[in-house]
Amino acid sequence: MGDLWDGLAQALWLVATLDPDLVEITLRSLQVTLSALVIACLIALPLSALLVVKRFRFRRITIAVLNALMGLPPVVVGLVVYVMLSRQGPFGVLGLLFTPTAMIIAQVIIIVPLIASIAHQALRDLWAEYHDLLISLNTSKRQRMAALIWDGRRALLTAALAGFGRAIGEVGAIMVVGGNIDHATRVLTTAIALETGKGEFALALALGFVLIAMAIGVNLAIHWLGRTEREGRW
Rank of each mutant, 00 (worst) to 15 (best):
L161Y: 07
T99G: 05
V32Q: 05
R124A: 13
I105G: 02
L114V: 15
V108M: 03
P90I: 10
G78R: 03
I168P: 04
L133T: 09
I104T: 12
Y130P: 00
L96F: 02
L133K: 10
Q31W: 09
A49P: 03
W127D: 14
I63E: 15
L156P: 08
L72V: 14
L42M: 10
N67F: 09
K54G: 00
V76C: 06
D151G: 07
S117Y: 00
P74N: 03
K54I: 12
P73F: 06
L114F: 08
L94V: 02
G92T: 10
V32F: 01
V76G: 08
V75N: 03
H131I: 00
V81F: 06
L134V: 00
A44W: 04
L126P: 06
L42N: 07
N67C: 02
L37R: 09
L157H: 02
A116W: 07
T62G: 00
I109L: 15
R124C: 00
L45T: 11
L148S: 12
S35Y: 02
I111T: 14
N138V: 07
L137C: 05
L37E: 13
Q143V: 06
K141E: 15
A119Y: 06
L97E: 12
P113M: 07
Y130H: 08
Q88V: 05
V65R: 01
D132P: 06
P100T: 01
I63K: 01
V112I: 00
V108D: 01
L97G: 12
I118T: 07
G95P: 14
V52Q: 03
A40M: 00
V77Q: 07
L114N: 06
A160K: 12
R154L: 15
Q88K: 03
L79F: 13
V38Q: 09
I109K: 06
A44F: 13
G92P: 14
A146R: 15
S29M: 07
L137R: 11
A128I: 04
L34Q: 03
V83D: 03
I61R: 00
F58A: 01
T33W: 01
L47V: 11
D132R: 14
V32T: 09
R142P: 03
I110A: 10
K141Q: 14
I109T: 11
R28S: 06
Q88R: 04
L51R: 03
M145D: 02
